[in-house]
Nucleic acid binder design. Structure first.
Lengths: 342, 342
DNA sequence: AAACATCCCGAAAACGTTTTCGGTAAAAAC
DNA sequence: GTTTTTACCGAAAACGTTTTCGGGATGTTT
């Protein structure tokens, strides 16, 4: 009933534990004959090495930690899938924790993962995070850490991102190209780098096209669990504040969908009255009515890339050849749909 | 640079490792004074117990495994969130793997988790799974396992489910109540219990209302990654086969949304020409047009309940008082929306 | 003063693996 | 026939923790 150990195999074959271990790990100093015997018996007894012991001995867990702001989220669940699939290929398992966009929780989760002694960390930081000591501590411990999407510019680690600024610029330019004269922006929270960058891209596009930048046209969403509601609220507010807006670039599809729902309810026609561009290309955006123009953000690929990079760094550290951080930028694409039909 | 161990603390205080360990774990046979000293030093040195050693010694990992068919999925990501949040409260971490609806992969993933020596398993079985030996083996190893949603009736373990049959009955009855005379059903794959039960509920409702059951009105979807496409295909096929259908009960919202998209493209009006009820209450269903009537399936709660049950069983096994399996049925609710407006 | 209980501490074994280092025997070289 | 190489094996230490058990000191009861 008890799990089979090296000792059990050794005793049955009348050889030492050492030899059994070596036989199973293809050490050169064990004869073909005994290697064969060990292999065979191990198989019939269904021997599985005790991970706890292996971990203790080798000081690695073949496990990585993943901290994300939200789990029920199209983009993030794609990232999760990408990370897990890639990790599996390399024999790593993934422990997932959620920060819920809170700095305190994020800190706690990272602590938890470190005390579990994961071999590496992948993280997309919370909206609430402005202080990065908890992240720098990870690096100080020589644990590799890779950030994706929502990164902290000041932390020296590898990052997998998109060019948010460029993508936002493209989105806004698209609105301008199809004739919008007064374009609003629903931005994300104030702290996250990507929401800053998307805002800057929006602003730059206006300036480059000789259109005035009007701060009152910029609305803030905290995102998190209530994105949809925020979209509705901002849409209502926008109509009250400015009746001349004919285009909006919105930080996230879910917010955009909330806004569209509200506009529809209030009798504002899309795209006739207001044209809308979202961000992320949630699946939903292709099935709602009207379908939503958006920026495709490659979540699955981002996850895969993040793990690949982490894997390289974990190996580099094992071989005492730590690498310098790398920033990988993945391509995005403007997906034109009905919400910006001219 | 190296992590602090009990030994380090012991040496600095000139006491034994034993005493340090006991002091930190509130053993009664250590004086208040030394306990205080140990505690203090542990804190200043930022001592974190080495999980690998603890695991090896205690034979538990405080980690559970979760195997689900798909990750990028509204229902399942809600379950994930529920499990993780509850596990965290009890000091457990969660390792997630995806079976991709494949029996082979499911088997492999379970093996992986067992060799990682997780303390328990939560699983929703794949469409492709017809043989349950891999699950019975887990039970034979005295590892608790809890199934949810897609269960195997024949495996003796706890299960968290909804009453699929009743829910499907309610959904179909609703279509009948609003005047549908000829109701089709897009069912799930042939093997999964819940897709069987939903089909049976549909059939029963017809019979109880003296409506003929017509097998040619039942279409099969394999689900998995291509649910949306299957919905479209089946919708097209249905129109060819039967031009008199005025209502459809569909196994999953995503398939229903695919069908609605196709109907819209083909000029079939919903709910005027055909009324539709989905299943699961994906968020999407409340924002598409027309909004989709569906059965709300409490994913988050299911996840929480599943972990709670697993937790009980893990403790029971630790205390050598194994419990008998429990089947917990959660309530569902019919959410009436535009797709069945009469 | 002897007997007993109480309080505190530490030695040692155990969990199962990996890896270093020596050692013995047989084969090869001189 | 002696030395050197090669092939194979095992003892032992180590990873860091937990827990059992015994024992010494101090205090309390006869």
């Amino acid at each position: 009933m008890k799990p089979v150990t090296l000792k059990d195999i050794a005793e049955q074959l009348n050889i030492s534990v050492t030899t059994v271990s070596k036989a199973l790990k293809d050490y050169p100093d064990v004869s073909k004959k005994t290697r064969g015997l060990v292999r065979e018996l191990a198989k019939t007894l269904n021997y599985k090495p005790n991970t706890f012991a292996v971990n203790l001995r080798t000081k690695e867990s073949k496990t990585i930690g993943l901290v994300i702001p939200v789990i029920v989220h199209h983009f993030f669940s794609n990232v999760i899938k990408g990370i897990i699939s890639q990790a599996e290929k390399k024999g790593y398992l993934v422990i997932i924790l959620q920060s819920n966009e809170s700095y305190e929780l994020e800190k706690k989760q990272i602590d938890l993962l470190l005390s579990q002694r994961v071999d590496g960390l992948i993280i997309s930081i919370a909206n609430g995070t402005a202080d990065f000591n908890h992240l720098n501590e990870v690096i100080a411990q020589e644990k590799p850490i890779v950030m994706f999407d929502k990164i902290a510019k000041l932390v020296k680690c590898s990052k997998i991102i998109i060019d948010d600024r460029k993508a936002a610029y493209t989105a806004t330019q698209h609105l301008i190209d199809i004739g919008c004269k007064r374009i609003a922006h629903f931005r994300g929270a104030l702290l996250p780098q990507n929401s800053i960058d998307r805002f800057l891209g929006y602003k730059q596009a206006l300036i480059d096209n000789n259109m005035p930048y009007d701060p009152t046209l910029v609305y803030i969403c905290e995102l998190g669990d209530k994105s949809f509601e925020e979209g509705k609220q901002n849409a209502r507010q926008l109509l009250q504040d400015h009746d001349d807006v004919d285009g909006i670039f919105i930080n996230t599809d879910l917010v955009a969908i909330g806004a569209m729902t509200e506009f529809k309810a209030l009798g504002v026609k899309i795209p006739e009255d207001i044209k809308i561009v979202g961000f992320s290309n949630w699946f939903m955006s292709s099935v709602i009515s009207p379908t939503l123009t958006t920026i495709d953000q490659p979540g699955y690929k981002m996850g895969k890339t993040a793990f690949k990079q982490l894997f390289k760094e974990m190996n580099a550290i094992k071989n005492k050849k730590p690498k310098k951080p790398k920033i990988i930028t993945l391509e995005t694409e403007l997906i034109k749909r009905e919400s910006t039909k001219s």
